[in-house]
Simulated scan of single mutants.
Amino acid sequence: MRHLISMRDIGKEDILRILDEAEKMEEILNSKKPSKILEGKILATIFYEPSTRTRLSFETAMKRLGGEVIGFGDIENTSVAKGESLIDTIRVVSNYCDIIVLRHPAEGAARLASEYSSVPIINAGDGSNQHPTQTLLDLYTIKREIGRIDNIRVAFVGDLKYGRTVHSLSYALALFEGVELHFISPKELKMPREIIEDLKGRVKIYESDKIDDLDVDVVYVTRIQKERFPDLNEYQKVKGSYKIKREHVENKDLIVMHPLPRVDEIDYEVDKLPQAKYFKQSFYGIPVRMAILKILIEEFEKA
């Protein structure tokens, strides 16, 4: 675990190790006592795309562990605006810090960065490809709120074509026993065929375009991502395809998750229900990212 680029690079054992460590980090977080675990260490956040939760939770995680943070979230005020390549940016910034969190619109950018960095790289999203730390906090949410990850039924609703969180989480869930994946989307936004083929034989897969009967343990809702569509006319066709309402989930033994931000795909009335876990899910990002920072920095120093 020199870097964290894709969920396909790590196994079930690695996942469980991170989730176990996150439980310890949650205890530190809830104690409100300052920690010195990463005192003297510096995290660099390099964000070529907008972010609220991922960037702020990583910064919070590092500071909660006693470390410091540098970085940028606006490329217009950096040398990137002058034409500096990603490779050169990584080579320079890795001299200034102990670990880097990178978000970039191009698929494969994090993998490329890891080849030139002298410190660990954490992929905070590369286009519509992967978002492994979101996946790990999603798994942690499921474990904390349901009590298990094995033998669960998960319905993914919305943008399954461009939804990197859906792609990453599907691969991760396929490592666990007895998992069912229900993919619910308009035909234009179906889960990519290559991912379906990869998952076949490892999990039970069901595909549908209806949300009327959600007989599952987890409803994972995703925003239809306007920014990912090469043709805005195609976006207009599918915009607002689904909205999870109170009647879809009330009185059901399930939880509703969402990587956020939400636009109109979950009615605000759902927020009042005990099934709604998306804001708790956002909180869980802090202990999970605390665990990831600690593990990767320690592993790097041992190498």
Rank of each mutant, 00 (worst) to 15 (best):
I121N: 00
D98V: 09
I90N: 03
L102K: 00
K82Q: 14
A113G: 07
D98A: 07
K82T: 13
I121A: 03
A109K: 01
S94D: 07
T89K: 10
S79M: 08
V101L: 15
A106P: 11
N123G: 07
P105G: 02
L112Y: 04
K82W: 08
K82C: 11
G125L: 03
A124L: 10
P120L: 07
I100L: 07
R111M: 11
I87D: 12
G125W: 04
S79P: 10
S118Q: 14
A110V: 11
R111C: 02
K82R: 15
Y96I: 05
Y116N: 07
A113K: 01
G125R: 01
S118W: 15
G108S: 05
I99A: 03
V93E: 02
E115T: 14
C97A: 07
N95A: 13
Y116I: 11
Y96A: 08
A109E: 00
N123L: 05
A124T: 08
L102G: 10
V119H: 02
T89G: 05
G125K: 06
G83Q: 11
A81W: 09
A106D: 15
E115H: 13
Y96T: 07
T78G: 00
A110P: 05
P105H: 11
D126R: 04
D88E: 13
S94P: 04
S94K: 08
I87Y: 14
S117P: 04
I122W: 04
R111I: 12
N77A: 11
S79L: 10
L102P: 06
V101E: 12
R103E: 06
P120W: 01
A109P: 10
S79C: 03
P105V: 10
A106L: 15
E84C: 06
I121W: 00
P105D: 02
L112M: 11
N95W: 13
A81R: 13
V80K: 03
A109N: 04
V93D: 02
D88W: 09
D98I: 08
I122Q: 03
E84P: 08
